[in-house]
Amino acid sequence: MIEIIAGKYNYWIYISLMMIGFYAMIAKGNLIKKIVGLNIFQTAVFLFYISMAVREGSTAPILLSRAHGALTPETATYTNPLPHVLILTAIVVGVSVTAVALALAIKIYRAYGTLDEYRIAKLEQDAE
C-alpha cells in the first residue's frame, strides 16, 4: 500500500489537480472561474504526460555534446522526448482554447451584463 502511494506520488498529485480543475469547470458559476479551472485541468494532464517520460538518472533530451558519440547516443541517458513533444502541442491547444473561451466570455458579458451562469440562465428564461 505504502509502496503504491510512494511509488506513484506524482500521479496522485496530477489526479488531485485534475479533480480540482474539473470541479471548478463544472461547479463554479462564474465563467472566468471556469476558464481558470480549465487551465488547471489541462495542466494536470500535461503533468501526467511529463511524469510519464521521467526516467531515473536521465538528463534533458538534448545531446550532451557532439563529441559524445554523435551517431549512437546512449538512450538511457536522456529523458523520453516524445511526451514532451505531445505536450508542447497540447499546451498550444490549451492556450488556443483559453483564448476562444475568453472571447466568448467577453461577448457574453456584453450581451447579458453578468458572468454568472445562473443569472444568465434566468435572463434567458425571462426573455423567452
Binding site: G29, L102, A103, L115
Partner: peptide, 21 residues
C-alpha cells in the same frame, strides 16, 4: 500570455465573482 489574456478579459468584464444567486 494566458495571464495577460485573462487580465484583458477581466478588464472588459467584471473583476469579482458574483455570489451564487
Amino acid at each position: 500570455i494566458t495571464t495577460v489574456l485573462l487580465i484583458a478579459a477581466l478588464s472588459r468584464t467584471f473583476r469579482h465573482e458574483e455570489d451564487p444567486e
